[in-house]
Design a protein around this nucleic acid. Sequence first.
DNA 1: GTTCTCACA
DNA 2: TGTGAGAA
Length: 141
Amino acid sequence: MPASVAVPAHDALRCETFTITELADEFALTTRAIRFYEDQGLLAPQRRGTRRLYTPRERVRLKLILRGKRLGMSLAEIAEILDLYAAGKSERSQLEKLLETLSRRRAIIEQQREDIDVVLAEIAALEKDCRKRLKRGAGGA
DNA sequence: GTTCTCACA
DNA sequence: TGTGAGAA
């Protein structure tokens, strides 16, 4: 159980780190997915031997990755913002990059809504036609 | 349990 | 954007 919920005294003394399974459990991810994010350059955990050790900072990055995914951002887009964050860039540059990404995302979503509206209109028209023809042939053979 | 790599959708 | 399988 990660320290975000409760911090036992012994964990307060040790520099807290997380294993890949702890993070996977906490965020309902597979360990494979977490390693995949690392392959894509979104995470860079320390190692104890060959085992990955995640600091609270890496955990925060993972949270940000998940937030980006909820917004429909690509991993590449998420990586860009994360890089600014890690490089200690100004919050301003991060926010500007985020706005840029959100803008692109909004355009895509709005286009999809338009496309959906077009299909809904087609469906409505077809339904109307079907009902009309049913009524016309109501008593006939 | 965790690592990596290759294949696959 | 991930998953499955196999080997270490």
